[in-house]
Amino acid sequence: MATESTVVYLGEHTETWPPRELQRPSLGTFALVAVTLFTFAFLYVPIVVLVFFSFNSARSGAVWEQFSLRWYERVLSNPRILEAAMNSLIVALLATLGSVVIGTLMALAMERYRFRSQPLWDGLLYLPVIVPEIVMGISLLLFFAAVRLERGIVTLVISHIAFCMPFVYLTMRARLADFDRSLEEAAQDLGANEWVTFRRITLPLLMPGIISSALLAFTLSLDDFVISFFVTGVGSQTLPVYIWGQIRRGVTPEVNAISTLMLALSIILVLISQLLQRRQRV
C-alpha cells in the first residue's frame, strides 16, 4: 500500500477514496458500515426485486427469463384492473379536493382566531395522524352502518377526506405560520375588501402550499388499503383492495407490474410536492 503524504497544502484536493477512516477500519467502524448497508438492503431489496420481476417474461416469479413488457400489457388490458384503477383515481381526486378545501379553511380559521381552548382543538385536528388506521377503518364502518349509508364510492370518499384532511391541515398551518399578515392589511389599505384580498393576495401566496398538500393527499388516498378495505363496497374496489384480492390467489407478475406503476406514480407525486415546498422557501 502506498503511503499517503500527510502534509496538506492549501487549496489542494486532499480527499481520498476510500475515506482515510475506512483504509484501516476498526471493529466499530466495520460494524457501523455493516449495519448501514444491511439497513439499505432491507429497505430496498424487496422493492427492487418486485420491480425487476415485473419486467420478467416468465410466469413463475422466481426465475429470470428475459426482459418483457407483457405483464404491463396484460394489466392495461384487464377491465377489472382498469375499473379498480378508475375507482382509485375518482376517490383520490374527490378526496383531495374535499380534504384540501376543508383542511385549508380549517387552518385559516385556527390561525386567525385565537381562543383559550384552542390547543385542545388543534390537538384534536392532529390526532387522526396517529390514530391506528385499523381503528379508524372500524369506526368509520360502524358509523356508516349506523347512518345506513351503503358502502361504495361515497363512503370511500368521505373516509379518505377524513384521513387526508389532518395532513393538509398540518401542511397549511406550517405555511400560514410564515404568512405575513401585513400583506393582507396592505391590500385592504389599498382599497381591497376582504373577498378581493383573499382572492388576489392570500390564495395566490398560499397556492404552492395548497398544491403540495393536494399532492400529498392524493398520494395518501391512492395508496390507502386498511381504511378502504373496511368501507369499500361491491364494484367500488380501489386498486390496493383489488391487489389484495388477487394476492390471495398467489402473487402473479401482473401484481408486480401494477405495484411498480403505483410506486412510480407515488414517487413522482411526492417529488413534485417536495420541489414545490423547496421552491417557496427560497
Binding site: 401585513s182 400583506l183 385592504q188 389599505d189 389599498l190 382599497g191 381591497a192 393576495i201 401566496l205
Partner: peptide, 28 residues
C-alpha cells in the same frame, strides 16, 4: 373599514406583494 378610508400606509416590512411586479404593486 381600512379599504374605505382615505389614508394609505407604508408598512415597516414594506408588505410588497411578492407575486406581483413593481408596476402591479403600485397599480393595485
Amino acid at each position: 373599514p381600512p379599504f374605505q378610508r382615505d389614508v394609505n400606509t407604508v408598512f415597516q416590512s414594506y408588505a410588497l406583494f411578492p407575486h406581483m411586479t413593481v408596476e402591479q404593486n403600485v397599480g393595485f
